[in-house]
Amino acid sequence: MTQFIQLHILTSYPPSNLNRDDLGRPKSAKMGGFDRLRISSQALKRAWRTSEIFEAGLGDHKGIRTRRLGQEVKQSLLDAGVAEGKAKDWTAQIAGVFGKVKKDSATGELEQLAHISPVELAAIRQLTAVLADEKRAPDAQELELLKKNHKAVDIALFGRMMASKPDFNMEAAAQVSHAISVHAVAIEDDFFSAVDDLNTNVEDSGAGHIGDAAFAAGLFYTYVCINKDLLLDNLEQDHELAAKALKALTEAILKVSPTGKQNSFASRAYASYVLAEKGSQQPRSLSVAYLKPIVEQDYGTVAVQRLQEQRRSFDSVYGACAEQHCELNAFTGEGSFEDVIQYVTD
Rank of each mutant, 00 (worst) to 15 (best):
M1N: 12
F4R: 10
F4E: 09
T11H: 06
D22N: 02
R25T: 14
G32S: 07
R38T: 07
R38C: 05
S40D: 04
S41L: 00
R49Q: 10
R49D: 04
F54C: 13
A56K: 15
A56R: 14
T66G: 10
Q71M: 14
Q75K: 14
Q75W: 11
S76T: 15
D79M: 04
V82Q: 09
G85V: 03
K86H: 13
K88S: 10
K88D: 06
T91V: 01
T91F: 03
G96V: 03
F98W: 10
F98Q: 06
G99L: 11
S117M: 07
S117V: 05
L121C: 09
D139Y: 01
D139W: 02
E144P: 00
K147G: 03
A152S: 13
E171S: 12
S177L: 08
F192S: 06
L198Y: 12
N199Q: 09
T200Q: 12
H209F: 14
A213L: 13
F215Q: 02
T222P: 04
Y223L: 03
L232D: 05
E236D: 13
A245P: 00
L246S: 01
E251L: 02
A269K: 09
Y270S: 14
L275K: 05
A276V: 03
S280H: 08
P283A: 01
Q297S: 14
G319A: 07
C321Y: 09
E327H: 09
N329L: 02
D339L: 02
Q342C: 04
V344C: 03
D346R: 12
